[in-house]
């Protein structure tokens, strides 16, 4: 069915490991204080080149924290994260770029200026700026809006541009923290398709945090299901469908099966998280003691 030029999604097992997370824990606040929160508990994870990995879990399970640790925006309390074998101690803009939930485009710069400043921060020579910017904007169909200010665009268009900025930075790894959360469902689906195409064309490694089960199944090669706080890896679900994915994938029985499987996995965790909010002392311990 799919064009042979596109790689199969399951060949990930033979690709080299790009991101390696080993025994990472993260505690917010002083360890002995009763205010402290264990957000991540001994998480280990290998991500291979060209993989699309989703971090899925209930609110507060530490999936964004894990993403921030990989991106070097947060330090791990113990354990280590590596990118291409280098230990991550701070942002590594040459290897990793971020796409955040809301648009992080600076409202005081036009779209072009935003791209230029991102490339400048990253240390890209000025001669390449305009070429890269226009290519990335064209790839999401936003080239005509290059000289607009972000406030002149709709939320969906802004996020499209924001994604393009992640592309223009040309890093091998793209970390996306709920990039579509603020969008309506239709825009979400279209951008999801774009992202799948992008992955197939560029072979980028993408780590994607989401709440949405359908989004996770539609986009991922692997879905890392996390437990309620403290976040641990509960299980890993393989999707095994080549990129780029068409909307038809959503109509296949396998899509709903995977989605239902994920829901069954998450239901307990979501209940645990809700219970923990109501009764913070007793609830989390009783539900998953391991």
């Amino acid at each position: 069915m799919n064009a042979p030029a596109f790689r199969a999604a399951t060949d990930g097992s033979s690709s080299p490991v790009v991101i390696s997370v080993k025994n990472v824990s993260k505690r917010f606040g002083e360890a002995k204080s009763n205010q402290s929160v264990l957000a991540l508990d001994n998480v280990s994870l290998d991500i291979r080149k060209g993989e699309f990995v989703c971090l899925l879990g209930p609110s507060g399970c530490g999936k964004s924290t894990l993403l921030n640790i990989i991106g070097g925006l947060t330090d791990a309390s113990s354990g280590s994260a590596r990118i291409d074998g280098r230990e991550i101690k701070g942002p590594t803009p040459d290897a990793i770029s971020f796409v955040f939930q809301e648009s992080t485009l600076f409202p005081w710069y036009t779209i072009v200026e935003n791209f230029n400043i991102a490339l400048k921060f990253q240390g890209v020579p000025q001669s390449e700026w305009s070429d890269r910017t226009m290519k990335a904007l064209k790839s999401v169909g936003m080239a005509t809006f290059a000289n607009h200010y972000p406030n002149q665009l709709s939320v969906g268009m802004r996020q499209r541009v924001n994604m393009a900025r992640g592309i223009a930075l040309k890093t091998d790894v793209l970390l996306m923290d709920e990039p579509f959360a603020a969008l309506d469902e239709q825009t979400r689906m279209v951008l999801g398709e774009d992202l799948s195409t992008l992955l197939a064309e560029t072979g980028k490694t993408i780590v994607f945090v989401t709440h949405s089960l359908a989004e996770a199944v539609f986009l991922s090669d692997r879905i890392i299901v996390m437990t309620a706080r403290p976040g641990r890896i509960k299980t890993v679900v393989e999707v095994g469908e080549p990129h780029p994915r068409s909307p038809d994938f959503m109509l296949e029985p396998r899509f709903s099966e995977l989605r239902n499987e994920l829901y069954a996995l998450l239901r307990d965790e979501i209940r645990a998280a809700t219970a923990a909010m109501r009764d913070p002392v007793s609830a989390p311990v009783s539900l998953h003691g391991g």
């Binding site: 971020f98 955040f100 992080t104 600076f106 991102a118 921060f121």
Partner: peptide, 12 residues
């Protein structure tokens, strides 16, 4: 904070 984190992640 999103602008700050965004800029930092790009190496600002």
């Amino acid at each position: 904070q999103l602008y700050i984190r965004g800029a930092q992640s790009m190496g600002a």
